[in-house]
């Protein structure tokens, strides 16, 4: 999928060192090798609020947290079947991520939609972490091809299959897009800013709603996350 004008493509370990992270630029395409784990609200609540012991050695085993629930099943013999994996929207997890990054040493947060530059600057940069976005959000089958094997699943009885903590061995899993950098800049905010310049023209002549609702904004450059 590379072409002469297209974005830069990079192979990256799921336990990357500081030098590898420092070379990443907004909009780079990344493919991952190594172990990644899934964690979202269920895991964060159980580990951070209920103070359960995290069943993995983090970041020793993995420094890559995928905001994801796989399409998967556990077979009667205990083996796993994982078809497609796709990220879920990350902004909902901002409540837990500062503590999670500090506690687990996670360096790569992989998900959908990214966080705000404020989030990046306040706790990604201090923890040396980078945000990677999945591509198109629907490339579950391509990402599925990057699964070498499912190593284990934890807390599935407590949290259910969708919220459980899956440990996945990846080989050239991708594509992902670098959505934050070492300075805390945000790819999506950069794109939004460019798009917003055009919006007044697109909206010209349209009519604001007669009936307002509490909590609404009419500033089109606002983000609603």
């Amino acid at each position: 999928m590379a072409n002469a004008k297209g974005p830069r493509e990079i192979r990256l370990s799921t336990t990357p060192d500081a030098d590898a992270l420092a070379q990443l630029r907004l909009g780079d395409i990344v493919y991952l090798d190594g172990l990644m784990y899934t964690a979202r609200e269920g895991v964060y609540i159980r580990a951070l609020e209920d103070k359960a012991n995290i069943p993995l050695d983090l970041p020793g085993q993995s420094a890559a947290n995928f905001h994801c629930s796989p399409a998967a099943r556990i077979n009667p013999d205990g083996s796993f079947e994982m078809g497609a994996i796709t990220a879920t929207a990350s902004f909902r997890f901002a409540k837990w991520l500062p503590e999670w990054l500090a506690k687990t040493g996670t360096k790569l947060v992989i998900g959908k939609g990214g966080m705000s530059s404020k989030d990046y600057k306040s706790y990604f940069v201090p923890n040396g972490a980078i945000y990677l976005s999945t591509v198109g959000y629907g490339t579950g089958a391509l990402l599925g091809r990057g699964i070498e094997r499912v190593e284990s699943v934890h807390w599935q009885e407590e949290l259910g299959l969708a919220q459980a903590m899956w440990l996945i061995r990846c080989r050239k899993m991708g594509p992902f897009i670098v959505a934050s950098d070492g300075d805390g800049n945000c790819l999506f905010e950069r794109e939004n800013e460019r798009i917003s310049r055009n919006l007044a023209e697109v909206y010209e002549g349209t009519r604001p709603a007669t009936l307002k609702r509490f909590g609404e904004t009419d500033d089109k450059s606002d983000e609603l996350i």
Binding site: T139, G140, P175
Partner: peptide
């Protein structure tokens, strides 16, 4: 880039008989 990845993803889903999105 994203649209090309999506087109490849549809092919991968059909070839591998796996869900196109997780």
């Amino acid at each position: 880039f994203v649209l090309q990845a999506m087109l490849e993803n549809y092919e991968a889903a059909k070839e591998d008989r796996r869900a196109m999105c997780g």
